[in-house]
Design a protein around this nucleic acid. Structure first.
Lengths: 128, 128
DNA sequence: GTGTGTGCAAACCGTTTGCAGAGAG
DNA sequence: CTCTCTGCAAACGGTTTGCACACAC
């Protein structure tokens, strides 16, 4: 039951912190593999979930999960072309949660994700 | 290239419209199977995507995709226990999109999903 | 008749899990 | 020594795809 220290867990945590883009499990795996050649993807998933459960990371839902070391609630922008996911400085509005707590639902939080095209993709590909 | 009429596509579209909860591909398949015993899940997926591309449906992202026949932008509440997904009457704030169009991103829209526990689940299971 | 749509099954991709062995305490 | 964590590989669930046939036009 007690959580022990593990080299892999710390490396995974640091990799999430170091990444500007909120990485997926696969991205972390790819990043760490050169340094930890025996690392397995299962270990990455297990540790990400444990870190999320401990509250050291936040999991951002989606077709493929992304992880975020910024714990304060905030909002994201996602690029529809390259799937890049970054923070907005648009503030998380806790008033929304209070207001939405109608209908008998108990609201815990909300996810606000803006969809669009990032500058890099817009430049690369003018049409379509 | 031209889109032809298909019995299945219309049934799938009507099934999404008829469902109060925003159904997943599997839900639609289960709903229609009794009436169309030869329907295949692949057909459901293909038609949902085509309907979304034609703008007759909207796809709501998530670990498993959900589909919505309400085209006007609006927001959702999701139950963390039973995964039920319903509409909020909380208005979609287009001002957010305009405001977020900083940093050179071209914002198309946003997804605002409240997470919480629905009344039914709250009643069933007081703890955990 | 031409070509899109369908059913079926296999493939695919992200994620989870069972197991035996390695490593932390 | 105990018990958690790891690597590996198999399994899993949602989704996509290749193929031959059916059906709309």
């Amino acid at each position: 039951m007690t959580t022990r220290f593990s080299q892999q867990r710390e490396r995974i945590y640091k990799a999430v912190c170091a990444s500007k883009e909120h990485p997926s499990a696969q991205m972390i795996y790819d990043t760490l593999r050169p340094e930890l050649p025996r690392l397995s993807l299962g270990t990455v998933y297990r540790n990400l979930h444990q870190l999320a459960q401990e509250g050291r990371l936040v999991e951002i839902g989606g077709p493929t999960a992304r992880f975020d070391a910024v714990l304060r609630p905030h909002t994201h922008i996602r690029c529809r072309r390259c799937q890049r996911l970054i923070d907005t400085d648009w503030p998380y509005d806790a008033a929304l949660d209070r207001a939405a707590a109608a209908k008998g639902w108990s609201i815990q939080d909300h996810e606000l994700i803006f969809n669009g095209i990032c500058p890099a993709c817009a430049e690369k590909n003018t049409n379509i």
